[in-house]
Design a protein around this nucleic acid. Structure first.
Lengths: 198, 198
DNA sequence: GTGTAATGACTAAGCGCTTGCTTATTGTGT
DNA sequence: ACACAATAAGCAAGCGCTTAGTCATTACAC
């Protein structure tokens, strides 16, 4: 071993392109962003993008996939780390909301740019989304069956709880008056009210 | 007066173009839609669009403005038609949710295509959005001050309530198992839980 | 060490195509 | 005759992506 990393410059450049693409896609959308925009923001020539990535869509796919995998992991770990359904729901909503506020740029792409993916990539991402929805719905159903939640329809309560978190990506601003932790704590309390936890 | 309408064919054609643009923008986004897409869906030549509208952006603006005006009217009328804050909030959320489920196509444009508007149009639309947010926040604050709502932070509760309704435009499907009325009734109940109305 | 070939990040130039929109012209109803 | 809806054709600009090549670094026989 000569120095520190295996592919030092290449990895850093790939990351710079991905960061530039994330910022651009979040602000103007996939179709509103040009490959020249991304390359310029990364401080490179338009052709440099194609040294590191197959296509503009591949950038979107990589961003979308890692974003979805992160979200699924956050939810899974929150559920596993808690005992009863109420504590689990509180942890899920807290972490889910904090993640969407903190990472609202990436979360905007995750939630609003699905239609620009190729059919194959779209299908793969949709599968992760189903796992996320299933985990939350199952949690609400478990609480309802155990009698610790009081919900007329667990399915629609689960949709509402997820919906609240996802929409944070749309409205959250870094310059706003609430920190990600403020939003997370308030939203966790709101979720427990929605399912009437006791 | 000769017949029925002032500009019979022109108005129908304008509406057809607006409908085609609404469907296309909702499905693929503003930048993902071409003027040729819109014209073809309306059954006309690409140039026909410019007989009736100044630009592609004008179509977006017209759709967005009428959509926002409808939403503001729905909320204002719901508040005025109800007496106490709890009945008002129930009516607001019911009508707001039903409107977003029923008209999810237009609502998608209203809520997710703001960035494609010109700065002047964007500013005009943002003003309507502020009025919508203000109306809901004021309603929640009024309920909290009157003691009929129990909320730690009326502002964030108002954001959450609006957020729930808006996000319906993202996930609602006509082929799904819930009718707009189902969603509306469930969401109205959820909103009353969020503010702990009594 | 030194000459030389191989490697791979990066770019200047540009290709084929699509974009939003315009122009010149042709219908069509009154 | 007139007004105007509608179109065929096309323009300038911009698009995603490719090609052909430069340049710095590395590999290695001698």
């Amino acid at each position: 071993m000569t120095d520190s990393a295996d592919r030092p410059r290449s990895d850093a450049t790939r990351a710079r392109l991905l960061d530039a693409a994330t910022a651009a896609f979040a602000e103007r959308g996939f179709h509103g962003t040009t490959t020249r925009d991304i390359a310029e923001a990364a401080g490179m020539s338009p052709a440099a993008l194609y040294v590191h990535h197959k296509s503009k869509e591949e950038l979107l796919y990589l961003i979308s996939r890692s974003g979805h995998e992160n979200t699924l992991r956050i939810i899974t770990e929150a559920i596993e780390s808690a005992g009863d359904p109420a504590a689990a729901l509180r942890a899920v909503v807290r972490d889910f909301a904090a993640h969407h506020a903190q990472g609202h740029t990436g979360a905007r792409i995750v939630n609003y740019e699905l239609a620009a993916l190729t059919p194959a990539h779209h299908a793969e991402i949709r599968d992760i989304r189903h796992r996320i929805q299933h985990a939350v719905r199952e949690l609400v159903e478990r609480g309802a069956e155990a009698g610790v939640f009081d919900v007329p329809d667990p399915s629609i309560a689960a949709v509402a709880v997820l919906s609240l978190g996802i929409d944070i990506a749309r409205w959250y601003r870094d310059e706003g008056r609430w920190s990600p932790e403020d939003v997370a704590e308030h939203y966790a309390a709101i979720a427990l009210r929605i399912v009437r936890a006791h």
